[in-house]
Design a protein around this nucleic acid. Sequence first.
RNA 1: GGCGCCGUAGCCAAGUGGUAAGGCAGAGGACUGCAAAUCCUCCAUCGUCGGUUCGAUUCCGACCGGCGCCUCCA
Length: 487
Amino acid sequence: MGLRLYNTATRSLEPFQPLDPERVGIYACGPTVYGHAHIGNFRTFVFYDLVHRTLEWLGYPVHFVMNLTDVDDKTIAAAAREGMTLEEYTAPFAESIMEEADTLGIRRFDLYPRATSYVDRMIELVSILLERGLAYSTDDGSVYFDISAFPDYGKLSGKDLEQGRRGERVAADEYEKEDARDFALWKASKEGDEAVGAVWEAPWGRGRPGWHLECSAMGLAEVGETLDLHLGGEDLIFPHHEDEIAQSEGATGKPFVRTWLHVKHLRVEGEKMSKSLGNVISVRGLIDEGVPPAAIRHQLLSAHYRSELNFTRAGLEGSARAVSRLLDFEARLEEAVEEASGDSKDEDASTETLRAIADRAEASFREALADDLNAAEALAALFVFMREANSVVDEASASGLLRALEALRSMDEVLGLLETGRAGRVVDPEFARWVESRIREREDARSERDWQRADAIREELGAEGVILEDSAQGTRWKRGTPSELPG
RNA sequence: GGCGCCGUAGCCAAGUGGUAAGGCAGAGGACUGCAAAUCCUCCAUCGUCGGUUCGAUUCCGACCGGCGCCUCCA
């Protein structure tokens, strides 16, 4: 079955059909870099990552662009408060967001354009819209989009245009809009703007671009006149994306976006995350507390992107355990492959069974993703695979085990849990040498059946975060996640 | 008020017109010197009330409860 996606514009599942199969063009609304990103932002970014990885996994050549908004009211205000230019103020935030994204296993997209680098394009767009009579400038040098000239306005969000009555309350408005629903393409400069360098020369006056304009400019410039996919948080449907459509289509005369994908907001411990509730969670904070990044990623992937996700502490612990099992599973397969290739086990029934298990798992995994990127169901397929494979690992031959390992890693190309989780188990070599020497001492004690000494060493290692696993092939060790450690 | 979404086991969370995936937690068992890891077994009738249907958790309606957008918040 081919990929099907839920298109916000049509409110239905549609088969995915890129305009150009050689280059799938995707634009995602990125963060405003005026502060640290929170876990809600990262639900969205992890979703972008899921789209990115899934399409590539399915074989599509993807061109994926996510913008960074480095000029808007809040950014200007914050920069002014700090006495900095926009550039100086936003740079560190952009950097920290990228770092955290890396930590969560969000693969780099192809391009991260910044709004301030595309102002020329925005001015061009406004000129075209003015020429075409879709926009008007006002005495103060601002420019507004004339909604009444764009009949499709409201189609994406399903707004009833007759709701806001034309002309009403315009007099009371601080701007000189002709219609309360018109939106700014260009804002005439104010003193604050000058101080932080948020001012550009345009034919109709000095000022700065309106927020919605940047995404049209960057999308058109870096992806094309018609995007295959445009992604964003659910809150952007109106007015941001509605306005993007009006500007872009008004300027090009072509459909701007074929499929709109919107991700739902998350909740924290069952409540809306908000500054007033004081429950805004930062990824940086979680990581500093010792929460494994892979656990965060797991929880963010555990619910379908169009449903609300409840981000909780308890869930984080559960996710840490789940990821840990996945890592154990990979390690177990690797070890088994090594052993099996040693004693050249023959192909047998259990090998065939393992191959069948892997095939079936990949098939249901693929089906889940193809069905509107159902990551929760894909995860279920992976865990069923893990249970079934674990039960035959000891009997299978090297070729069967390799097939299982290949399937596991293939699925992780999309989920990115192993690759993210492995980073948490890296230890420095000196520590590893110490652990191994303690394990050898414990082996001596065990061979003398000195259980007390053996257990004492295990406890000593446990205090350092090391978990031991005795098996017929010797003792394995791993570094445990906080939730697995005593205390 | 307008548009829309959700209510599945202790927690998280998929899904289907024909008696409900997966994860975490929990109970019992196998394995183990003891553990760990792993495996096996157990643990829900799907907010309430009606309707349609041979049959509904899944469709329709009402109600109760929670939530989103409608103001440059992902």
